[in-house]
């Protein structure tokens, strides 16, 4: 248990891209999350879904300005959270989502 807790990383992020978590941002998030050896969860107002399921992420209905809690558990949890939080803060690097 203790071991697992040590490998649990959480980070609050704010979704700032223009159109929220629709198919394209969700697909990029899923892709990154899937690269890491860690379980990734995304929570919005108490609803928790897998960060590796594109459809589950889309069902959150997270619009621009939503606070999300990212949680990763596993060997690469901190790497996963760092990259995912970066991706969200850079508005998924999608040009149309920037302004």
């Amino acid at each position: 248990m203790e071991d697992l807790a040590a490998r649990r990383v959480e980070r609050k992020v704010c979704l700032s891209n223009k159109y929220g978590l629709h198919i394209r941002p969700a697909s990029l998030f899923t892709k990154v999350a899937s690269r890491y050896n860690a379980d990734v969860y995304v929570e919005k107002e108490g609803t928790v879904v897998s960060g590796k399921s594109i459809l589950a992420l889309m069902t959150l209905g997270a619009a621009c300005g939503t606070e999300l809690l990212l949680t990763a558990i596993g060997e690469q949890s901190s790497e996963a959270i760092n990259e995912l939080a970066g991706l969200v803060s850079r508005k998924f690097d999608i040009p149309e989502e920037q302004d």
Binding site: I23, S53, L55
Partner: peptide, 17 residues
């Protein structure tokens, strides 16, 4: 980048859920 939408569609099909 419109074609990226379809990439998302493929990912939904690949989503085990």
């Amino acid at each position: 980048s419109e074609s990226a939408t379809f990439e998302g569609h493929v990912m939904i099909l690949d989503d085990p859920v």
